[in-house]
Design a protein around this nucleic acid. Structure first.
Lengths: 193, 193
DNA sequence: TATCGTGATGTCTGTCACTGACAACAGTGA
DNA sequence: TCACTGTTGTCAGTGACAGACATCACGATA
């Protein structure tokens, strides 16, 4: 007989998403989430630094995909190639069978200012981390930050489009379309940037 | 005899900055801030939506400067010219005699994760608002968002540099230097973008 | 001049996010 | 057998914030 039901964190996360999407974020207390999976409020806060964080568990994996993609790029690769590589990798992180769940999650986030704030912050952190990775490849400032921010902007735009009702294209396809538009925008004359 | 001391909001803000920078953000309660200027905790929360917001009061003015700059641009101005104009306007919003106070404020923000989160969010909001303004001038997506994000990135980089110890150049000068680097980065071959 | 409305405030009360301290207790390895 | 570890529960406390209601100087208006 097991001491505790396994995967407490995942169970809490699933319960939280369920409750947030039905009752709303503010109308759901941390104690309710915990009790709904047979745990105490105290345990909830041992797994998540705060109530909002339960919706962002897994983000670290996502950041890691960014970093791995940068570090896996050939030493002599040009910046645009690195960016394209990063965007490809990160888009594959969201296959189509995650789209429905992502839509639910995003709807919850968009309905609450505190959650949108957390999302902004995570995104900003992503840009920071990415810039850092580019710098450690030898890129200077402000080029590294500008490239990193552009990359996260492209991804954000593509991700939002991926979730839009009626949108059926896979994220990889949308991402490369948005990237193409960026390339046209900043260097209309160049054949490849 | 006056009914209340005037400018309650400004007094609260000044007291908060003072207390945060000496004791620290978390070590200062909203009640303490209020009492230090002879007001009640309840009144503090009537003026500021939450404890963090007291450090961001005035941001609306700043956003307005962005918007005015966009709206004041000639109808037929090219995007890079609009961006340059916006950056010029917004840099003038921070003359050198605000540098010392800005440094104190920034030091407080950087020492607290919750405050950094709020700052990320404000910055993201700025990008959103700016993109909206560019769209209403006829720019399409994703060009509007990309241009807006680049603009806020340039400003953020310049602002951080402006606050750096030993930095003496005015913000306007730093901003145009960073913008120049972005232009070189993006279109090294073009003489003017 | 009397009165009335208004807006900024105080007080009181309650909820909930979050934290520290301590105990319990099943498994694990020596 | 026993000490150790990691996850949990319980309990008590703090502080952010919100709703309801009272207060009261001031300005407008009758």
């Amino acid at each position: 007989m097991v001491r505790w039901e396994p995967a407490a964190k995942e169970r809490l996360q699933a319960a939280a998403l369920e409750l947030f999407s039905t009752r709303g974020f503010e109308q759901t207390t941390a104690a309710e989430i915990a009790q709904s999976v047979g745990l105490s409020e105290r345990t909830f806060f041992r797994h998540f630094a705060d109530k909002r964080e339960v919706l962002f568990y897994g983000q670290e994996l996502f950041v890691q995909v960014f970093l791995d993609a940068v570090e896996g790029a050939p030493r002599d690769a040009a910046t645009p190639d690195v960016i394209a590589r990063v965007l490809r990798a990160v888009s594959q992180f969201f296959p189509d069978d995650r789209r429905a769940a992502s839509r639910v999650r995003q709807a919850v986030i968009e309905q609450n200012p505190a959650l949108r704030e957390r999302e902004s912050h995570k995104l900003a952190g992503l840009g920071t981390v990415l810039a850092e990775a580019l710098r450690s490849r030898g890129m200077d400032e402000p080029a590294a930050t500008l490239a990193a921010e552009s990359t996260t902007t492209v991804f954000t735009l593509a991700f939002a489009q991926w979730l839009r009702p009626g949108e059926n294209r896979p994220l990889t396809e949308i991402t490369s379309a948005v990237l193409g538009e960026l390339q046209n925008l900043i260097a209309p004359s160049a054949t490849s940037l």
